[in-house]
Design a protein around this nucleic acid. Sequence first.
DNA 1: GCCTTTCTTGTTAACGCTAACCTTGCGCAG
DNA 2: CTGCGCAAGGTTAGCGTTAACAAGAAAGGC
Lengths: 346, 346
Amino acid sequence: MASKPNGVPALRMEDVARLAGVSVMTVSRALRTPPAVAASTLAKVRAALEETGYLPNLVASGLASSRTQVVAAVIPLISQPFAPTLQSMSDVLRRASYQLVLGVSHYDPLQEEALVRAFLSRRVDGIALFAGGHTPQTIAMLEQAGVPLVEMWADSATEFIVDAVSVPQRQGAQDVVRHLLARGRRRIGFIGGSTRHNIRAQARLGGYLDGLAEAGLPHDPAACEEATHFLMEGGAAALARLLERRPQLDAICVASDILAAGVVFEAHRRGLSVPRDLAVAGFDDAEIARSMYPALTTIDMRAEDMGKRAAEMLLERTGQSSRVDLVAMPSRMHDLGHTLIVREST
Amino acid sequence: MASKPNGVPALRMEDVARLAGVSVMTVSRALRTPPAVAASTLAKVRAALEETGYLPNLVASGLASSRTQVVAAVIPLISQPFAPTLQSMSDVLRRASYQLVLGVSHYDPLQEEALVRAFLSRRVDGIALFAGGHTPQTIAMLEQAGVPLVEMWADSATEFIVDAVSVPQRQGAQDVVRHLLARGRRRIGFIGGSTRHNIRAQARLGGYLDGLAEAGLPHDPAACEEATHFLMEGGAAALARLLERRPQLDAICVASDILAAGVVFEAHRRGLSVPRDLAVAGFDDAEIARSMYPALTTIDMRAEDMGKRAAEMLLERTGQSSRVDLVAMPSRMHDLGHTLIVREST
DNA sequence: GCCTTTCTTGTTAACGCTAACCTTGCGCAG
DNA sequence: CTGCGCAAGGTTAGCGTTAACAAGAAAGGC
């Protein structure tokens, strides 16, 4: 115990303090609040730190200060549209000397619950969740823990727990449909993810229906397909099923760029030209959307801003004196807007 | 302190113990080693845990036991070829009740060093790195900490620190060249990532050269390009530069599927047919390789097995009594092999 | 030159848990 | 009926840091 696996005890502050000829507390201050230490003392301590190669024990620090300097994010999937969000979150947090840790829920509310439980047990200083699909237990735990919380990737109309960063998912899908109509397409199909436990998928389907209704077009349930998973293959398979039922479709509104890429590949495989025979539009402006050929028309969901704002909102809640009454604080929804990006695929 | 932000003190084991009418230690045992507690006592404790909704404080636990039950992985990039590795690592670790945390180094040895320092400060129980490109400080810290360590994605011939999981990167690239030669291609170009700080890129370039040499073909430096970054766009731009110098190339060996996808897109954009005009082979068997059209010929690098074995090797080192002499333990290299997967793109 | 403030450092007591040891009580062999 | 062993639970003493307070030295006002 208190020793490294090979038996040599790990360095403690006490060792540094002895070498520098000061007390342990002074070393602690030199590390955390250097201005509170006299310049000459600081120099001695820094020399001792250098000489020993001391690494502070943040476990002990976390216990003593009851702040771990860790923020957790639970994402549904480790995949493209979320990477920029996480990157910008991580950057903002690191600047405030917090570390971001990740959990992947696979769109499963029970896995999310398990992850939240694990993170709360580790006493993280904040949690970012993707909006929607939380179990009652998850919400109860979060409330009991009173930890700063933010939901990301919400629809503007979503219920949220405390804070949320959103883009209007539903309106984005409607914009895509409007665009396809403006391009003269009338037989527009839809491919989305499973709407089960996924409010983003639900909102996007809703926006598609809104778009059709606005144009006075009937809703044909057989022109809608759910992909079984959020991979390109899922999109390809969904298109195959869709074309079997409705071979005359001239456009597809797809609820994710990854799926949309699969749709385009499947169309090519069948000898259909995109966009001539089939227009395809995606969602999220993931990397592949601008890189592939033909480049995908899509909706920019401000993935980076989402992570940045989410991190900032968390820091606002943690930054204050640690005795703020979270419950009394008003919930806030920060809406980031969205943009249709027209490219070659439509 | 010791209170949630809204002022209500967090539950402690003591609260549970009082409710169950037992000592704190008994609650601890009920949670960690249930067989050591009598059935009737266990029931009382579990009822109290249920009633209070107690979440153990793993920070305190970590300090007291000097085991955090956390393993860290530093990856160069949050991108496709690594996702399955991380997923399988995470699965293996979770089963042993360890949690995986992630750091992204962006192929920068200094960022890797900062991440390793942060993880060691948090006293993780093990670290997985991607092979190669470590600063001397990184290695010194790891040695001083004596923490279980494994390198992944090594080449068979790589130097490694303690344990490593590898696939023969160099031989894989050579196999690709052999395959292209067997298909009758003779003007074979190469597109890789930056070889700076990336031993995988170096090994793959080496394998390409081996393949040419074996066939008695000359090495034409102008037929090799480095992508500026590991995104599809990077591959596309690299092909554009390459074709400007060597328009007659009939095959490209690409050091990553992501880059290869960009190469294929760029070829299409220029009206070249793949594989008729240009054969393209990738590396890693990432998701896009099998999903795109044309599907990519590539090398399966056993990404999943890599994560699984890496996690197992770490657990073997941590699992033992915590006083094993790491330095005395022999280094181990576990080679997983590789397979050429021939698809439509060649 | 005395008293008050400010700056700098030290001392003490947690933080919430677990390792290691200790006590109790019961069953059972001799 | 004595004593031994073992199961079950309790007690004690940290783990390595930081919060809170205390104390001494330096600086400044009058």
